[in-house]
Amino acid sequence: MNHDFEPQIIAFCCKYCAYAAADLAGSMRLNYPSNIKIIQVPCTGRVDIIHLLRAIEDGADGVYVAGCMEGDCHFVCGNIKTRKKVEYVKKTLSELGIEPERVEMFNLSSAMGPRFAEIANQMGERIRNLGPSPLNIKQAA
């Protein structure tokens, strides 16, 4: 695990829960790695398989989707549908010989500032251990 590797991680966060939790982590001045880049969507249900694949294709080392707790989705069940799509993308990546752990789905409520920071740290750590995405290694070589 080389320390100078700076992963690029994209996080799709739903406006009502995960994005609000990210803001709360900010107002509580918690800390998490700066390579997490957050993209806001109205509901995780809006995140499509193509968005996740496109992120990996563009060169992201890790992608995760953060939505409301199951049962609390502002739009009833967007988060449950998206968990299925994330599973599909994991299967596709493993078929292509890429570590499926690079893609993940999380659930948290808008009050869980610390949990958001914990997730960001955990994903940062996991991707740093996995090393750069295979797509980037060949690129660099």
Partner: peptide, 19 residues
Amino acid sequence: VKEVQILSSSLKIARKKEG
């Protein structure tokens, strides 16, 4: 149309992996 995009992206990922 969606599946075409997904397949295209998947193939590009595979090839990009091999450089």
